[in-house]
Write a protein that binds this DNA or RNA. Sequence first.
RNA 1: GACCCUAUCAUCUAGUGGUUAGGAUACAGCCCUCUCAAGGCUGGUACACGGGUUCAAAUCCCGUUAGGGUCGCCA
Length: 516
Amino acid sequence: MTRVAPSPTGFMHIGGIYAALLCERVAHQSGGIFYLRIEDTDQKRKVEGAEEVIINSLGRYGIHADEGVDQNGKDYGPYQPYTQSQRKEIYQAYAKKLVEEGLAYPCFCSQEDLDIMRKIQEKQSLRPGYYGKYAKCRKLTDDEILANLKAGKPYVLRFKSNGDYNKRMIIKDLLKGDISMPENDLDVVLIKGDGLPMYHFAHAIDDHLMGTTHVIRGDEWLSSVPLHIQLFVALGWKAPKYGHCAPLQKLDNGNRRKLSKRHDPEANIVFFWEHGYPEKALIEYLFNLLNASFEDWKRTNPDKDAFDFPMNFSKLSNTAGALFDFQKLNSISKEVVAKMSAEDVFSAVLKWAETYQPNFADRLRDNREYVISILDIERNIGKKSRKDLLKWEDLPNDISYFFDDLFTTTREEKKTLIPNISEDLIRTISQEFSRIYNPADDKDAWFNHIKEIAESHGFAGEMKAYRENPEAFKGNVSDVANVLRVLVTGRDKTPDLYMIMKVMGTERVKKRLQDF
RNA sequence: GACCCUAUCAUCUAGUGGUUAGGAUACAGCCCUCUCAAGGCUGGUACACGGGUUCAAAUCCCGUUAGGGUCGCCA
């Protein structure tokens, strides 16, 4: 039984997907339950519609919660509600219990009081925080508390820690092993001025009530584990097992740092939607970061779904935090796209374009069969399949020359793409080929025509012959093919020209060959 | 400042006392080739540093250094 517990800030961090994927696998691979809880106790950061962002993001990557909140904001599962702001009474009931047991107390310190206290502590280079003799309100008598309450002074509820900072405790982390840490002696805030709980308190209560057995979360929480265990003890409950993993990082001026939503556009999962990265590619990349053995498994099981991968939780890559590597993602993405059928690529691109490039979406819909035949060029021919498309946003430019209204290469541009061959010769070659071109020819016949034309104009028909004696020729067959390529596509680098001509159709090909 | 985590090629990593330190990505070269991509082959000053323990250390211990994280009425 484990969970993912994001905050609805309107922003889904890629690290959140990474963590969710790990939690989902921990739960489901062991036959457990995986649920979603919305942690919205910070009303200041809450953004309208943010739950939807979270739920859509998870769903998009195939991470499904057995319990939680659905797209319409409706709870499902036995421990409703799954949104913390709706559980206010629950937290307050337990808070009240702790006060009665003398384990919590109201604190009337203002923000200014705390700031002053912190400055004093810093000046004496003491550990900052509300503890020991600095925990002023801890010593308030019942009468003083009553008087403050009566005067309407705002207050928070603090935990009365019995920890000793000089004593140490061993915490067992599923991912990092045994760690020795000082006990917590901070009287942390349990309930804030607005009546909602702090993360720590809500964590203890919800994870107990919802039956969480394993808490897998970012290692920014590692330092709070002593407090969390203390909280579970105070409430009379058994603490869950913890596992802390390092966050995704990026290189910044030679230094690593956490992927930050303020500075790094790729921290936002929407970045990958906008650019049209296939969902499968991102998931496979994240699996790869979680368990390096994933790619070996994938190589021996190329057709299996990533979620079938038997993850080894004791071998999680839990070191300093992986650097997000676009080159690796791109390479995985190329493999993923190469394995898709032309129809599947078409559907995925269309779905992407509908949101991010409506004009291109119209073009796709109007030319469905044509585009699929374009996408089918050098596809599914085994090991040598084309692997150059990695994200949908690249496609509009990749295939633009297939459309007459987008084929705008000027005569001058064509000339610069065909260096060393005179205009007359370009015209001669293209006209000769145009006359002879027959779409019914197979590839060998097609290429033989080009060779013949090449040889008749003093170019080498065979690359070998050319290489052995380059001086004897004007050039070689690839120069002649290049003439045709540039005239037909406006580019000097394209997929297989034979297939391109076939897909384009005789009429279009001949028209372009003659247009010089 | 205190506490915690981490340290193997450029990057992700395999490695749990004896390995020519392995793989993937990236990069470079060659081959193939109508260009590109793909594919095939080949390549490169990687165990942070310094001490131990041991016949033997990337692996265990101690320091140093570096990076990361935490110390909120944020999560």
